[in-house]
Design a protein around this nucleic acid. Structure first.
Lengths: 214, 214
DNA sequence: ACGTGCATGTTACTAGCGGTAACCCGAGTC
DNA sequence: GACTCGGGTTACCGCTAGTAACATGCACGT
């Protein structure tokens, strides 16, 4: 096997792949998560079978596409999480970073959270597991790792960290989604409210007069 | 218009509708969220156009189906939330009820969280809003109402309650989904870990030795 | 008794999707 | 010049959601 030849080919293929991904990106941003393979191929100036040669199937293309955006988002989240500041400030910065991202590019967000179900081949056998968006899982695991690394949680810390990682990410997700739809307040206010929740204000709050508390 | 006649017709139509929904239920439970209209019609012993006459389109059928399950789940959650006990106990009971539900019937859960995207007619115009599952939204609003009714949160209580409602529901969702996929622990342990998070243990935890805390 | 609505049901179709087989062509190689 | 081989296309398959048009049976008014 000719090694340099092989690398040349691979480089060319990789360039093509990136071009195709960029075209796909444009289409998904324009048409939403239901962008068809035909449309993507047309945008890239080619026809379907090439896409299939490069990405296997629609799920493969969408996975590749999602990976880019997910990586980018995770990078900025890591940056916010690693900043030199108090814990509460970091938490707020991370929440704010996430919200700013979904606010700035809602279509990307929508695509990442709803990878269009990926056809029926993927879930034949009905595994149930991993039904939620890969982005959520990855964010959850990442946050869990940080929590476990940095916090002293005593026995059972690993499990606790993972539960919290996924839980906090879910909180961010659901509250963010609701906020994005209704825009009931400024971003900062939402951030503060969520941080308050994480800081135990739910447990500390007093009952309202007139009945047993929640 | 003959009123009794009309009610008779309506009652008959309603009965039929319920039968069809039950058939659809069986198919969705068996085949997952991608159950086709053909399959549902076959299970009901009829053919497609009847389904379309009753439910308009696939989204309508799925919405009707989801509403039943969502109502049922929300009823049991309300029961847990309204039990006469301490706040922490109630929170744990509610979390446990939710987790027990998704554990007992994962296919239903999967269906409720991923209503198969509902075709492209629904999101033409690309609203972005309300992208997450209706079940999440409804649970969030419901919980928000309870929080607002029962807790004394001072100024801005309404916004705070809604953020927390959606946030807690999201936490439950993501952690539950992860747990269902990996089964890393008993249900009770997950419940306790989440309650700990809500009770402020994240803020209270000490830094690990060797660096600035999270 | 007889049409006339009207709900219920069917067959047969369209349009579009994901995915694939088969062919096609130009560039490099012996 | 024949020969392979990567990049590309056309034309198709099977499946889906959704619909139009046709059939059937039961209640009604006259």
């Amino acid at each position: 096997m000719d090694t340099t030849q092989r690398t040349d080919q691979q480089r060319s293929a990789d360039r093509r792949r990136r071009e195709l991904l960029e075209a796909a990106d444009r289409v998904v941003l324009r048409d939403g998560p239901h962008a068809s393979m035909n449309a993507i191929a047309a945008e890239a100036g080619i026809t379907k079978p090439i896409l299939y040669r490069h990405f296997g199937d629609k799920g493969g293309l969408y996975a590749a596409l999602a990976k880019r955006h997910t990586d980018a988002l995770l990078d900025s989240l890591r940056a916010a999480l690693d900043a030199p500041a108090e814990r509460r400030e970091r938490v707020e910065a991370t929440l704010d970073t996430y919200l700013a991202a979904i606010e700035a590019r809602p279509q990307v967000y929508r695509f990442l959270m709803h990878p269009a179900e990926g056809g029926q081949s993927a879930d034949q056998g009905f595994d149930v597991g991993q039904h939620s968006a890969p982005l959520l899982r990855r964010m959850g695991e990442e946050l869990a790792q940080v929590i476990e690394d940095r916090l002293d949680l005593g026995p059972g810390s690993q499990l606790l960290a993972r539960v919290w990682g996924h839980g906090i990410v879910g909180m961010m997700y659901a509250a963010g989604d609701w906020w994005l739809g209704e825009r009931p307040c400024e971003r900062g206010e939402l951030v503060r409210s969520m941080a308050d929740l994480l800081w135990g204000r739910l447990a500390a709050a007093g009952d309202k007069v007139g009945g047993p508390g929640f």
